[in-house]
């Protein structure tokens, strides 16, 4: 479903991703772990289409199509969804309006009719239950005055409504208390299925206790230095990133 080949990315002139190779199959959940500053968020953002990230080398294919030449909105319409680490607050646009506009834009792209108001309400209510969101939430401004936990729940809620093929979750566990973490994890798990893939970007292991990954990759200094199964994540939790850094090949010293 997602094929990343030798991806190099610069942010403000500085190389952050230094050759990423990654292959994600339908039905799989891949976790990307790594210390702060290793390039995890950059990877998530570049897949979603943030233009301030400059791809200098490499390819990304999504279902065989070149993802990097697509506009962000077309990536979403093709089925890529990124849950933001820091969702934006937009007062004046209700959650309901926003979500309906997004859903209809995606449906239009796929040649489907706009969703009927009643069907939309039914869909939203069903998905809101999953995340224990109350009814007033849809009328509130988009993320306006939401707590960190509410914002993260809203991201997963949007994901549940829009039903993407590839879910990229950027630090979705950060800032969540244990109850919210469980709800969010339930929401994510409810979406796992044979045709959907997930890329879970996280610093800590704790989300992965609930959303158990098929493959874990460790990203250090812009490169994947180790891949393994869920046990790798547990080892990282126990021993930290230090041992990986020891084991990983040192970057070549800068030329004088």
């Amino acid at each position: 479903m997602l094929e990343i080949e030798n991806l190099h990315v610069k942010v403000s002139g500085k190389e952050i991703l230094k050759g990423i190779d990654l292959s994600v199959q339908p039905g799989q959940v891949h976790a990307i772990m790594g210390p702060n500053g290793s390039g995890k968020t950059t990877l998530a953002q570049v897949l979603a289409g943030r233009i301030t990230y400059e791809v200098t080398q490499g390819k990304v294919r999504f279902e065989g199509k070149d993802l990097l030449i697509m506009r962000p909105e077309d990536r979403a319409r093709e089925g890529v969804f990124m849950a933001f680490q820091y969702p934006v607050e937009i007062p004046g646009v209700s959650n309901a309006y926003f979500l309906k506009a997004a859903l209809n834009a995606i449906r239009k792209y796929r040649g489907q009719e706009e969703i009927d108001a009643m069907d939309f309400m039914a869909l939203v209510q069903e998905k809101a239950k999953l995340l224990a969101l109350d009814e007033t939430f849809m009328k509130r401004g988009l993320n306006e005055g939401f707590s960190g936990g509410e914002k993260k729940k809203n991201e997963v809620f949007q994901m549940a409504v829009l039903e993407p093929k590839l879910c990229i979750l950027d630090e979705t566990d950060s800032g969540l208390d244990i109850d919210a973490l469980r709800l969010v994890a339930n929401g994510i798990n409810a979406m796992r299925g044979p045709t959907r893939a997930m890329l879970v970007v996280t610093h800590y292991q704790r989300l992965l206790d609930y959303v158990v990954p098929d493959v874990v990759h460790v990203l250090v200094d812009g490169k994947i230095v180790k891949s393994g199964d869920a046990d790798l994540a547990r080892n990282l939790e126990k021993h930290g990133y230090g041992w990986i850094l020891e084991e990983a090949p040192r970057p070549a010293p800068a030329r004088p």
Partner: peptide, 20 residues
Amino acid sequence: FYLRSRGIDEEAARNILTYA
């Protein structure tokens, strides 16, 4: 970018934010 990443085209995103 947030609106576009959900499938809303750029012009509509700008209009929504302007109205907001």
